[in-house]
Computed example of a mutant assay.
Amino acid sequence: MAIKVVLAGDEALTREALTELLQLSGGIEVVAQTGWGDRVLGLLDDYQAELAVLDVRMPGMNGIEVAEHLHEERPGFPVVILSGYVRPGHLERAFKAGVRGILTKETSIRELSRVIRDVHAGGSHYPSELVAQLVAVGDNPLTAREVEILKAAEDGRPLSAIASQLHISPGTVRNHIHSAIYKLKVGNRISAVHAASRAGWI
């Protein structure tokens, strides 16, 4: 029986090419694909899929967030992250979300097929260079609220707008931003957002 896979990524051309190549590799059936992260869980249910291949960058919900939701709802469900944009913070969150396979888009279709089979069978695959980066960067020093606020601040909106969005006071937003700036050893909010983004923490 072929492994039923849902494939999610924001680039239609890449999704379609991967679908064709995976099907040709034998033993793998891409039963559904989507460009929106928030549609993945529904597709897994609709098609009774056995594994998800997720890009990190997607609208609606990114691949790491999808993996985190899956980990809460279906602990142990096999997930492979495939992306050209894997940062140490992504790897840290992926570990915590139970992701057992991580590949960059530099990989070959043969390698991707092998990792899908291995992860489906209970194995794991983590690129050594990414693990080394994670060790070098260290754990995410930010609290969940600081991450939430920095993510809301990515587009440069004023404190009052962030406070309104998150239903907290502007003073609370300011305090969390100051805390994040101190922890990240940067000079201002913009630098804090950039530093957290580069590390993959937001």
Score class of each variant (00 low, 15 high):
Ala199Gln: 06
Val147Asn: 05
Leu130Asp: 05
His176Phe: 12
Ile102Phe: 05
Gly138Pro: 06
Gly200Trp: 03
Arg189Ser: 11
Leu54Met: 05
Ile64Cys: 02
Ala153Cys: 10
Val40Gln: 03
Glu129Ala: 13
Asn175Gln: 15
Glu92Trp: 06
Ala67Ser: 06
Asp45Gly: 11
Arg145Lys: 14
Asn140His: 07
Arg100Asp: 00
Val80Asn: 02
Ala67Phe: 00
His120Asn: 02
Pro141Glu: 07
Arg87Thr: 12
Ala180Leu: 10
Pro127Val: 09
Lys105Ile: 09
Glu111Arg: 14
Arg157Glu: 14
Glu11Thr: 08
Ala8Val: 04
Arg74Tyr: 04
Val66Asp: 01
Ser191Glu: 15
Gly26Pro: 06
Asn62Arg: 03
Ile168Leu: 11
Arg74His: 08
Gly84Asp: 13
Leu51Cys: 07
Leu51Thr: 03
Ala97Gly: 04
Arg157Gly: 12
Lys185Met: 11
Tyr126Ala: 07
His69Trp: 14
Lys4Gly: 04
Val6Cys: 02
Gly156Glu: 11
Ser169Val: 09
Lys4Gln: 08
Arg110Glu: 15
Ser191Leu: 15
Gly42Ala: 10
Gly156Ala: 12
Ile102Lys: 00
Ala195Phe: 06
Thr107Trp: 05
Ala195Lys: 13
Val80Lys: 00
Leu43His: 04
Gln133Tyr: 13
Lys4Met: 04
Glu68Arg: 13
Val137Leu: 13
Glu146Gln: 15
Leu7Lys: 01
Val31Ile: 08
Ser160Arg: 15
Lys185Gln: 14
Leu103Cys: 06
Leu134Lys: 09
Ser108Ile: 11
